[in-house]
Design a binder for these strands. Structure first.
Lengths: 224, 224
DNA sequence: ATCAGGCCTGAATTGTTGTTCAGTTCTTGA
DNA sequence: TCAAGAACTGAACAACAATTCAGGCCTGAT
């Protein structure tokens, strides 16, 4: 054998794989999942259509991995924000705010990851993504309950409902399209966060403080 | 001219159109929107594939009309339930409960109408459907606010968020699949309704009364 | 420089459904 | 019973993207 998997080759292969995934992500961010088609993605990544299949067995696998990747990033951001908060309640508020800020600042991508029609089956991947995020939120609610800040409740159901509220009101078809205006965006984030927190039993007065605390730091995540 | 649109003919045509729509609805209720394909629907309706196109210009039109029809039914049910309630707050509770009961008792259909990927563009129709339902809920929230039962708020956003919470937690991919057990179903409806009402500012103690009042009558709508 | 071996290319293939339409069947009024 | 006109049939067509693969290209060891 005269051709071997040199370190350099391995690195190039990994870079290419990453380029394809990034191309897919960019396409999704620009035009939603509908724009994630093999040929255009290949062009974006500077490879031929066939090459995509050397890295991903099928389009379903490509999109599944895209969903998983975005999900991982989001989960990490949520954890970071929540862990930086001083107590369970503000951790929950920070987590919720982080989700809100993320989805509102990448609406097309969020919509694609969450709910946009795709021609291949990515149910499993979407399910896993939701489970991860909902699990994290559920845990934060639970912590607040254990700390006596919230009434006892079905935290898994609450987390799911809460995410549904955020998603529908910020990236759903009825979401107000304040395309850019940062002020309106922040208002929307605040309003919806408040609503979500009230749903799980956070008292109004307290919530306002938590939300204000949470929104400002989370803003810095937009660029990340 | 020797062939004319006799009353009998008109009736038969209307019946056929209705049969096709019903076939589509049944297919959607059984297998989601994915099952609404021209050929199978035609078989169900006892017509040939081509005949469908004498009644609906395209598949998109067929599905759009299906969505509109289901939406009309739901809106009517919501109004009926809310109008029968003694006051604004219980009207809101009744409206929310009605939505919850409907979606949970026809999950596949609801998922198809609301969010399931479809290969044709039905965005406009889905948007209209959401607008109608959200508008109704928004109006009910507004009435409760005007009655002084709820704090002032962006009722449109609240209605959207509230519906998102209901849908995601009852028919979304993370919804607990208590396939049949009526007890569990009622529990889920109650829990989520309570959560939704809290989100818009209904006080807990009061909410329990409202929810219990609302769930029982709404149960009778399942069969309708 | 050489060549073995995998990597990349991109045009052709495949598969899936919505849609069409020429021919057939049915309905109506005379 | 018959002619005119409309509705129905269902096989053929069209369109669109995902997927394949034969041939060329590049990389790395000798």
């Amino acid at each position: 054998m005269v051709y071997r998997r040199t370190h350099q080759v391995v690195k190039r292969l990994a870079a290419r794989r990453s380029a394809i995934l990034t191309a897919a992500r960019d396409a999704a961010a620009e035009g939603g999942m509908a724009a994630v088609q093999i040929a255009p993605v290949a062009v974006r990544a500077n490879v031929a259509a066939g090459t995509v299949y050397r890295y991903f067995p099928s389009k379903a696998d490509l999109i599944s991995e895209l969903i998983a990747e975005v999900s991982r990033d989001e989960l990490a951001a949520i954890r970071r924000a929540a862990d930086a908060a001083p107590g369970p309640s503000s951790a929950l508020a920070a987590a919720v705010t982080t989700v809100a800020v993320h989805v509102i600042s990448q609406r097309k991508l969020a919509w694609g990851i969450l709910a946009e029609p795709v021609d291949v089956d990515v149910t499993a991947s979407r399910l896993a993504s939701r489970r991860e995020i909902a699990g994290e939120i559920s845990g934060r609610i639970d912590a607040a309950v254990r700390a006596g800040h919230l009434p006892a409740q079905d935290t898994a159901l609450a987390a799911t409902a809460l995410l549904g509220a955020l998603h529908e009101s910020l990236v759903g078809p009825l979401a107000p399209d304040n395309t850019d205006d940062p002020g309106r965006l922040r208002d929307a984030v605040q309003t919806v966060t408040l609503l979500a927190l009230r749903a799980v039993g956070v008292m109004d007065a307290r919530a306002r403080g938590l939300v204000v605390q949470a929104v400002l730091p989370a803003k810095t995540l937009v660029g990340a």
